[in-house]
Amino acid sequence: MTSQERMEAIFQYQKTDRVPLGAMSTGFNTRNAGHSVADAYDDPKRSFQDMQWTSEQYGWDPIPQYAGHTVLGAWDFGGEVRMPQGEYEGALVVISYPVKSEEDIDKLKMPDPKKAGRIPQAMRFSELQAAHDIPVFFFSRSPFTMAANISGIDQFLRWTMKKPEVCEKLLRLSIDHIFNVLEYWVKTFGPDKIFAWMSSPSESNQLISPRTLKKFALPYHAEYHERLKKLGIKRFGLHICGDQNLNLPLLAEVSPWEHPSVLSFGHEVDLETAAEHFPKDIIYGNIEPAVIQTGTPEQVYELSRVAIEKGKKAPGGFILGPGCGLPVMAPPVNVWAMTKAANDFG
């Protein structure tokens, strides 16, 4: 099967020649090709080429393949963000948040959906995806995570307790911005080409309780999918980042997305548990990134074998991959260990 055929098959609940394999690999791609991490965010052409070569090298299927966020909270709304630099930075760095106090919220302007943040670079990247006939990934954080990124997470979490109405304002701005940009993408590429991808790190139980999720995050997940359906976008993936074990029953109860969607899990969530909660969806994950970075190839291979054994039983299908972003500095042989396991056991 070609990568494309494999992905089509899994979305039709059909058998594949082997377990599909993917990685959220923004900075790893450019480093792998001898370029800088900043190139992943700043140089769409180079980033795309490096992603293509890296995907071919490791046999990754396009689930998902992107070069960073299409929309961002802090940057798009006027905060100061800079490219990663130096030896130890692996992602964009927020220098200052656009909202420092409650009063700042009313001064916020809706970002230009074509020009804000790194949207122009993301558009160039998406054009290359479309030109190469691979899905056009549109990557946003969840509205809750984006809102927290506009005001800074500490302040936002305090407001969830003391000033919920302030949180609602930021959440409204966040989801409306996501869809302003998404409409631009739909007009450019058509809904069938677009694969909407979302991650929700600020919803992890390492930060918030299920009751906070229910009150502030879930209503916006529901609205997101209503609006996604109206736009005609069918392909969706959600990276349920970190430890979200306590959130799973609530997410499963609501599950507003089309089935099957791709649900990506961190190593903190057992794959069998994930499959039990989401039997109609494709389970994706969940090799621990820190082990990929600091462990041995044998450890990664064994974790991958176990993940495949568990994942194969998932009724909605399974994709092998890291439990979060592939570490930028991961040793190539450890990354290859996942591919080898997919070939040997998948």
């Binding site: 900075g27 930075e89 992602a91 970075q293 500095m329």
Partner: peptide
């Protein structure tokens, strides 16, 4: 928090 920075 980042796998990159933990390398330091």
């Amino acid at each position: 928090l980042m796998t990159t920075s933990m390398l330091a």
